[in-house]
């Protein structure tokens, strides 16, 4: 009856176990977690699993068909595809991970500060955020690689800045909502320090939303970085990377050997889809009760 009797409050609360942030994810949410865990696991242990050198190939065996030695076949340079996919997981995941961590921390800190101090500081943050919004992330990244040279570091730094406004905007509105709650007023009246209120009270109450947004950002960052590597501005050859492999596989497609682009692309799609679905489930849940 709890939800049906607005205005009535004395309801004996349900005594159920709380599952923390995993509560109410549903089948699709759990499947997505499974996919993401597998990908992350691959990124951590992948290079250790590889029995063959990902960068060494036999040119004579270019576009080699699947065999006992090469389960998924070989690329144009005769390098083992499976090994390159397994090893490439780390480069494919580490970039987006860095982008997400950096933009989440930066965005959340900005949002908390803006919501807490309000006034001119809040306005200033809002303006800066709006300005950065005007630049598409990919464009900013291309600009950065043009300035600082192609490669992951410049692209990651640029994307981190480009992704911060998304996090800042979502976290700010959630933080503002919390800031207006009577329990925050009660804490101030107690004499609890503002920093402590932000970190110990507002942050835990917006964390599901922040986590949800970070998960979705991970998917987008993976696509953006894969795209950069695809056009040759991101991860540089001969390093194995899913995005770069889609690009390198292009030549094979023309020669009816689409495996490389297909496998790498499928891994990207699966990872991004999982991140999106999970982010979506988390958002829905945080709207219910964070």
């Amino acid at each position: 009856m709890t939800t049906l009797t607005a205005g009535e409050v004395e309801v004996t609360p349900p005594r159920r176990r709380t599952w923390g942030w995993t509560r109410g994810l549903g089948v699709s949410g759990w499947l997505s977690i499974g996919v993401l865990v597998l990908v992350l696991l691959l990124a951590v242990v992948g290079p250790l699993l590889a029995s063959q050198d990902p960068n060494e190939g036999n040119l004579a065996q270019g576009f080699g068909a699947p065999s006992v030695e090469h389960w998924l076949g070989q690329d144009a340079n005769g390098r083992d595809l499976l090994t390159r996919l397994v090893v490439g997981a780390r480069t494919a995941v580490i970039g987006p991970l860095l982008v997400v961590v950096a933009s989440t921390i930066l965005g959340t800190v900005l949002a908390l500060a803006a919501a807490w101090f309000g006034g001119w500081f809040d306005t200033a943050v809002a303006r800066v955020v709006d300005a950065v919004f005007a630049f598409p992330g990919l464009l900013l990244a291309i600009l950065a690689t043009a300035l600082f040279g192609a490669g992951l570091p410049a692209a990651v730094a640029a994307l981190s800045i480009a992704y911060t406004p998304y996090m800042a905007r979502i976290a700010r509105s959630a933080a503002l909502r919390e800031r207006g709650m009577p329990y925050i007023a009660a804490l101030r009246v107690q004499g609890i320090h503002g920093l402590s209120i932000c970190v110990r009270h507002i942050l835990p109450n917006i964390r599901t939303l922040v986590l949800a947004n970070a998960t979705i950002s991970f998917g987008f960052a993976l696509i953006d970085l894969a795209g950069l590597s695809f056009i040759g501005l991101g991860v540089q050859p001969p390093t194995a990377d899913w995005g770069a492999m889609v690009g390198e596989g292009l030549a094979g497609i023309l020669q009816r050997y689409p495996q490389e682009s297909f496998y790498a692309g499928a891994l990207i799609v699966a990872t991004v889809a999982a991140a999106n679905v999970l982010g979506d489930r988390l958002t829905t849940r945080s709207e219910g009760r964070s």
Partner: peptide, 12 residues
């Protein structure tokens, strides 16, 4: 009735 008494549920 008080909360949880079922008065609103009856109306619903």
């Amino acid at each position: 009735g008080e909360s949880g008494s079922g008065k609103s549920m009856t109306a619903r």
